[in-house]
Each structure stands twice: as C-alpha cells, then as structure tokens.
Design a protein around this nucleic acid. Structure first.
Lengths: 193, 193
DNA sequence: CCTTAAAACTAACATCGTTAGCATTATATG
DNA sequence: CATATAATGCTAACGATGTTAGTTTTAAGG
C-alpha cells in the first residue's frame, strides 16, 4: 500500500531474478507478487498478461544470448569462430539454464516482434560463418543445421537423455561441432584457420 | 452411472486419441472425462495421477517411434540405413506431432522405467550405425550427436524458428544428415554404400 | 488545496489437478 | 438365489493457477 516505484521494467527484472533463483517451473504471478510485497492482481497495472511478461523475459534472454555469442566470436574467423560460438552457446545454456528454458518455451510464431527477435539468434551464427565463402542460400541452410545441433544437444542433455551412457558429454558436443565443420568444409571454398 | 467397461488401457487410449485430435496443449483430465461421459474425479479409479497418465502415453509414443524406426532401417546398412532412420524420425515428428510433443515433454529423469524407455529410442540408432566399424565409445557419442540433430531440427521447426528464411526446410534437414554422415566417415573404417 | 490519474486493494470467476466420503453397480461367495 | 464385497461411479470441496471488475488509496499537477 505505501506504494513503491514499480514499473514494467522493474517487474520484468524481478521476474527474471525469481526465475533464475527458484526455477522457471515454480514461477507464478503469485510468487512474483509476493516478492514485490504486492497482491497478484496489482501486477496487472503494469503488465498485460502472464504471456506478455513471459515474452518480455524472452526478449531479455535472447539479448543476453546474442551478447555472449557476439563477444565469443569477436576477432575470430573460420573454424575458430564457429567453435567459439558453439562453445558460448553451450556455456550460456549451462550457466543460465532457467533463462535458456525461457527461450525454448518461447512460441516463435505468435508476435511479429518475437519473430523479429529470432533474427537476434541468427545474427551471431551468420557472423561466425562469414569467413567461409558461402552463398546466401547455403548460409540459411547451414544456420539451421548449427542451431539444430546446439539446441538439440542442450535440450536433450537438460532432459536427462544423455545419462544412459558413461561417456563425457562435452566430448559428444565437440564431436557434434566437428561434424558441422566437416559439412562446412565440404562446400569447397576457403578452408579457413 | 450405467458403468461401461473402462480400464487403465482404454483410458490411456482415449487420452491418446484426444491428444492427437485436439492437441496436447488443450488436453486436460476434464476433457478426457467428458469424452468418456464420466466425471473428472472418476478417472482416479483407473489412474494414479495426471503425471502417471502422461508417462503412460509417453511409453506408447516411444514404442511407436521405435517401431517406425526399426521398420525404416530394415534390411539397410551404412549411409542408407542412417538416412532412412533420419527420414523416419522426421516423418514421425511431422505425422504425429502431438505424440512427438509428448515424448519431448517426458522428463527422462524421474522414474527408472522412463529411463529404461530411453533405450528404446537409442536402439534403432545403434542398429543403423552397426555397419560402420565403430568402437562402443564412438557409438555412444555419435548416437548423441544424431539425436541432437534430429530432435533439435524438429523442435526448432515446430517452434517456428525456421520461417525466417525462404529456403526449403527439408533441404536443410538433408544437409544436416549429410553432415552427420561426413562425421561418421571421418572415423575411418568402412565407408559403406 | 483539490482534482485526477496511477497504483494498490478486495472479491470474484473459471480452470486446473486432486482428495475424501458417499452411493451404486457388478461380481463372487455362501 | 441372496448377500457380502470390491470396483466404479458420484458429489463436494481444496488450493493453485491466471484474470477481470469494481473500489479505495496514494501521489502528482493545476
């Protein structure tokens, strides 16, 4: 009741903090309101819906992801860049798992805005592949391939699918990335580093 | 009240039917009960919980998946087998998307039973790679790689991540599989078909 | 100071899964 | 065939979820 300086941004921030500490699965508007010493309904003065909040958090997550990836490939080209990118992607997923889950749970179809955010994920990948002289079309395909590998790997590991066998998970990942590099090299031009 | 011949199996079947027609996202015990002309609470005479039902449906889905994959690689070896497997995986995901989502949403960690079911996913993959003379350890890694590619691709496409660019999705998938084959070949021994 | 708009509140709703307790139906047993 | 018993259905209720409507309170501006 004493009224604090709440706004949309501070609520999004609080939500992110809550998700990263308590886990996405136990996040709810109730919990969020509780941490803000507010009743649940009061949240609706600042956000339109839980879905909208979710999307907003997704934007944040994608932005952080993009940041990390761009920093990773900074000054690198060719295989080195691709490996650094894949590494950064993996580390982000491991270091901020809950935030990564938010990205995964983002329905890319809905808004145009969210569709546009998808390009933020693509951009660093395209940049990493810039060294190889590929056609536009090849890059579009290859970007999908690399994303599939990285995302697929992380989400399966997260789901616990990789505990069946006692071999090092990071080795498997490196192998996956090596496969992608082989594919990249198979397109002729510029073998790189 | 007149009491029909309901049992655990028939309820699981009805749930699967409902999920495949209406979509997983709008499935609920209420809806399920409605289609069975029963009150929601009555379901608990046959199932332990919604989670248990979910798991049960997961078993079914994995079994169908395995079936399809084994049939696909039947009589094939080497690259041909791997390609057939990847193709079957993709088609299953497209033809029974809701059932595939059930597999994805299965928390592989929980039960031992569900952990065991994970091997049903691995088995056809191992079988497809049998032609290449790989060590046990290599197969464990490579199985993870292929699963990452297939699952990652399907789930990103499902999420709408691939609509950014106007290039054929199936071409991207074939390219991804080709990358995996290159990786496979890089382990020396037996180039196959 | 007093009006007004923003931000909090209370109360209610529908939906979700779930449990407890009661009624009924089918089945098996004497 | 009758009756005890277990299986299956029902109703009623809970707490949690997101959400809306209507009301009060706080802060800011004229």
């Amino acid at each position: 009741m004493p009224r604090q300086g709440l706004n949309r941004q501070s609520i999004v921030s609080a939500a992110i903090r809550l998700i990263e500490t308590e886990g996405l699965h136990r996040f709810s508007l109730r919990e969020l309101a509780r941490t803000l010493h507010i009743k649940t309904a009061s949240l609706y003065n600042h956000i339109g819906s839980a879905d909208e909040l979710h999307t907003e958090i997704g934007y944040y997550a994608i932005a952080r992801m993009k940041e990390v990836q761009l920093a990773a490939i900074q000054g690198k080209t060719g295989d080195e860049a691709v490996e650094a990118l894949a590494d950064a992607y993996y580390r982000f997923g491991k270091e901020r798992p809950e935030l990564y889950k938010v990205i995964l749970s983002l329905p890319m179809v809905k808004n145009d805005a969210i569709h546009k955010a998808g390009f933020d994920i693509v951009e660093p990948i395209m940049a990493a592949m810039a060294g190889y002289h590929l056609t536009e079309e090849q890059m579009m395909h290859l970007q999908r391939v690399l994303r599939s590998i990285m995302h697929g790997f992380l989400s399966q590991e997260e789901a616990g699918c990789f505990r069946q066998f006692p071999v090092e998970v990071s080795d498997s990942y490196r192998m996956a990335v090596r496969g992608f590099l082989l594919l990249l090299h198979s397109f002729g031009n510029e073998a790189s580093t």
